[in-house]
Design a protein around this nucleic acid. Sequence first.
DNA 1: CAGTGGTCTAGACCACGTC
DNA 2: ACGTGGTCTAGACCACTGC
Lengths: 248, 248
Amino acid sequence: MVARYERIAAELRDDIVTGVHPVGSQLPSEADLAARYSAARGTVRQAVALLAAEGLVGSRQGARRIVLGNARSQSFAELHSFAQWARANGYRFGGQVITQRRRTATAVEAARLASDEVLEVLRLRSLEGEPVLVERTVYADWMARAVEELPPDCESVTRALYDSVGLVFAYGEHLIDAVAAGAHDARLLGVRRGSPLLRQRRITTTYEGRPVEWSDDRYRAGSVAFSIRNSIGANPLERRAGDLHFGP
Amino acid sequence: MVARYERIAAELRDDIVTGVHPVGSQLPSEADLAARYSAARGTVRQAVALLAAEGLVGSRQGARRIVLGNARSQSFAELHSFAQWARANGYRFGGQVITQRRRTATAVEAARLASDEVLEVLRLRSLEGEPVLVERTVYADWMARAVEELPPDCESVTRALYDSVGLVFAYGEHLIDAVAAGAHDARLLGVRRGSPLLRQRRITTTYEGRPVEWSDDRYRAGSVAFSIRNSIGANPLERRAGDLHFGP
DNA sequence: CAGTGGTCTAGACCACGTC
DNA sequence: ACGTGGTCTAGACCACTGC
């Protein structure tokens, strides 16, 4: 069952992408749209709110909505899962577990994952045959067995865990910055020591807010970029100060 | 005039931050909240939708909402403007124009900014007295005069342009990746050539979708990170393939 | 089965932009 | 002054969760 407002949003999105409502033009008023789709104004507002969240249209009280862009943004899954992102974009990709072991959690991990023992997995992932990503993931103890049962060359861990134990990643916090490649990472990725890597650190939880994993992913420079579209009013990205060392 | 649902959201946010509704606990039902605040259910839903967009609470049809976190996210302005972000976080910061000149636009710039002539500005910005950011910004011709009239040590360009010509940045597209420092950037930032920099490229437009600026900002590694909170269902971040060179 | 969130309607008033 | 989006109400039905 697809909601009414989602179908209306899909039609409007289509009209924007195909140029019926070109970039820079005004969208019809809510009243017009409500009449056209024989829906209540509130339903139409839900639809255009979707488009606004995607960055496709902007709005100001008192004036018609304006078309800002015509490319769609992507989903939570594609930010979270390398495999789901690569597949959705038609890339050839692969992955291989390098090392995997259980150990006691550090103090920080224990606090983050609410878990005394953890499973640490080091994976190397490739895009179009080139190694591009070193993934260091620490799983909470209650997840360890399911992860250990995955094949070492499992393509999509996210998908496999959904299929095997019904796990759904529902919420994530991500920190993105740049670091220099250490000797080990450099060898795995085939770059020189000290070359720039794009780092994504993330913690992911279930619907209930239960922490599942803490991961440190490092991409070879030039292989991947993160893209954000945001409009005034609401967006989830912020900047943070890092570990600057001040003073003498 | 602050909207009713915003005041309700503020109260709920406060209850979450102060531990009245601890992380992992259930939020009261919409009906309860409506009764407590003497508001319609729709208004309460607007309020909790705000909290959900901030990543503070999660929801599933049929079950009570659950508190996921207790830290708030930040605004569009803070992603867009170094100064506004730094000020909001209580950092000492500064800025200085290094070079500034008008020139004809390259083909790419002309397409992006819809402008034949552009104003190119190179700024060095500092945090707590340390240089952390090299900012190369290209402004569309209709913006050039207003930018040229700014003092060279202008702290907040965004704010100054709002005050002088009423310009409001309303929409942005950002690409975030890592690059190696060139000789010039390295000297300005006081790091070695080839060391990792966090790069944020962005194009910003007005409400009407008119492009204002195209900027290439490079942060010293360790000085700043970007942070994203996202929940399943909706978020604006995606990953993109970079300029990988495949094949022989 | 009862409770809860998700969707939808129909109507109202207000704040803001545009003319 | 008028049209537009922003807010709010009161009520309805449905899909799903949890007992």
